[in-house]
Design a protein around this nucleic acid. Structure first.
Lengths: 238, 238
DNA sequence: ACCTGAACACCGTTCAAGT
DNA sequence: ACCTGAACACCGTTCAAGT
């Protein structure tokens, strides 16, 4: 806990009913969780907090910087408890914890995977541990650098796609169109696809109109984690 | 070719100087390539085409639908030439072609990976071939469904992260901050990370301030493709 | 230090009207 | 059928002013 100055008289506005970076970012994450990324605006956030839109700009230089803070807040708890020296267990836990964090705040998925801003909020201690794990796995030199990218891409990739955001406005109409498109896929033109259609339909990538929030891809994710770990093993012995 | 009515007199406006869905979508992709996704607007597109903003809405119901068309246009040529029965070569070519397509239009990367709208523009013949490849690999039943998701996630995942968009406005200031952050990483706190810092710096995920456009991750991508194929092999024999 | 208040230059989208 | 033209309800951000 930081040392606090002794206060006398009435408390300063910023503690009683005023803002702080923390309250702004927390409120922003809550708003995004509720209304989605498209509908979220600095102005609506200001209204929630009962201040002028410009008050936000005291704590944050612009919208992007605010979103970077939001991402950081949402990804607080991805650090695995496993010892990095047990690299397979460590990475498996990392992948699962990351997915769990995004699942709690699915609307920010596009921000993390697809925007470089998110790098600003990265926990470098976590990065350090990942490299420690890869070193213990036996990676070194150029191979280690490549393995690092493989791990990061694997960590972010599946989950970003699983929780890809739905179209904001015309979600219902869009879902109906998608459903009809899938239903219309016929055996003559798509023989292999058609064979698995009923099982793929809205239950797996591409042929779906809902995302991981309502239709989680648990089994596929576990297969992906397994495949990634095994792939890294093979990379090691290549 | 569709049958065309016999025309007499001067040509209809839509052929001479008017719009069409094709010209609108082509112009939109060109605009996004040039100015980026954030700066792109329906209004600026209209200005480019020398029409009122509302003219666009004759061809497209809304901005999202326009973007879905743009994605479809950009991903025209990802179908591999390899026979799907040679599943490893087929998937490898798929991953490479997909990456090459995104590399040509990096600004749309966030749209494909992180927005479900992109599913609307998917080539189902390609999906059919992917399943054919997986069947020939020996996948069946639930395993095939999981393998399918693994392939899609792998295809989209790495590339989405590699071409993650930079912050629009304050790109220079942001890059400088990021560079300083990386430089400041010290040996005491991040011993493993520090050991590889100079090689990781702006050359690999997370510790970078440029994306795949200026700093392509070719070697890491090839490692990722290899790891994914090997991972699928292991999935098969599990 | 922290917020109000007005203003600027934009958005996406709707609706009615023209040709 | 295809586009103009005006209008609506928003944006993010800047800047000066208040306390």
């Amino acid at each position: 806990m930081a040392v606090t100055k002794v206060r006398r008289g009435k408390p300063r506005q910023s503690e009683e009913r005023g803002l702080s970076l923390e309250t702004v970012v927390t409120a922003a994450l809550a708003a995004i969780d509720r209304v989605g990324l498209d509908a979220f605006s600095v102005r609506s956030l200001a209204q929630m907090l009962q201040v002028y839109p410009t008050a936000i700009y005291w704590y944050v230089p612009n919208r992007n910087a605010l979103l970077a803070h939001v991402v950081k807040l949402a990804l607080r708890e991805v650090m695995p408890e496993t010892d990095p020296r047990d690299w397979e267990a460590f990475l498996t836990e990392l992948f699962r914890r990351y997915r769990a964090a995004v699942k709690r705040h699915p609307n920010i998925a596009p921000l993390i995977g697809a925007q470089l801003v998110s790098n600003a909020g990265v926990d470098f201690t976590l990065v350090d541990r990942i490299i420690e794990a890869l070193e213990h796995a036996g990676f070194a030199g150029d191979k280690l650098l490549a393995a690092f990218d493989v791990v990061i891409a694997a960590k972010v990739g599946f989950v970003t796609v699983e929780f890809a955001n739905l179209p904001a406005e015309d979600a219902l109409r869009w879902a109906e169109t998608m459903r009809e498109t899938v239903d219309a896929l016929d055996r003559e033109r798509y023989p292999h696809l058609h064979r698995h259609k009923v099982r793929l339909k809205n239950r797996h990538f591409i042929l779906r109109w809902e995302n991981g929030v309502t239709v989680p891809l648990d089994k596929s994710f576990e297969a992906y984690v397994y495949a990634t770990i095994q792939g890294l093993r093979q990379l090691l012995v290549r």
